[in-house]
Design a protein around this nucleic acid. Sequence first.
DNA 1: TATTGTTATACTCTATAACTATA
DNA 2: TATAGTTATAGAGTATAACAATA
Lengths: 149, 149
Amino acid sequence: MTDSAPLADTAGDPFDQLLGYHLRRASVRTMADLAEALAPYDLRPTEASVLFVIAGQPGITQSQIGRALAVKRANMVPIIAMLESRGVLDREPVDGRSQGLVLTPAGQALHERAIAAVRDHEERMFGALDPATRDILGAAMRAVWRDDG
Amino acid sequence: MTDSAPLADTAGDPFDQLLGYHLRRASVRTMADLAEALAPYDLRPTEASVLFVIAGQPGITQSQIGRALAVKRANMVPIIAMLESRGVLDREPVDGRSQGLVLTPAGQALHERAIAAVRDHEERMFGALDPATRDILGAAMRAVWRDDG
DNA sequence: TATTGTTATACTCTATAACTATA
DNA sequence: TATAGTTATAGAGTATAACAATA
């Protein structure tokens, strides 16, 4: 090491160079804000994401949603059950074991409100970043989580 | 909207423009890899981060660590208790209610191993990104989670 | 009055194992 | 054999409320 290296700085912040740490902190803060934004609709972030998928692909099954969102089959069960019990979605049997999922009118209305809440949330979290930075961020994040499956 | 807009694409991926979604997916994958990387040392990511802070600031109290890491006071208790019971750290009373925390020799050795594991992990997760992108990423993530406190 | 450490408790999300029924 | 839905269960991290002891 050189004798003029700013040792105190490195010792003072052990996480300075650790992208994973800042990624985690940013994600926790973002999720907390999203949870708060969706709370008025009694929606958890995961439930909202499921709503988004069904709205975009009516008739999709819960296993397919799970694969799209990286939510395990077993964990999809209570999410779908909750949304169904609230009258947000309907199950339409496609064969003996699968059910196509579609939003009810109430579900479509809820979806619209969730979309608006998420848009506001995104603006709060990332609105201060310039578009070029946002693009780099999006591409990099995709590269990180898509690197495998 | 223009008549040549690729509607199918937007409908096909409702999360395309949602930075928070990709941030979350990247964070989950990164945390899973980190957990796996630290598992051989029987260390949870949060425990490792506490180790890092104490190594960088010997004598720090658990409340101070909590503030630095955004871990609630109440949640610091079992973490510190676990690390102490493992012989990783010692408590040195500074006044009647606070205890300065320092790593034991075993704790320092564990810290070194954790550092190496985290470095390998960071390389696995972000090594494919070029340095300029990593810098932009780090700055943007910081801006997101530091925007308030 | 404010802070430290603590206990108790609950929620969200993730993970695995195993079962039934169907393809 | 493989897949869909399901049940049960566990773990990690986060959150709040409240308390005693100390500053």
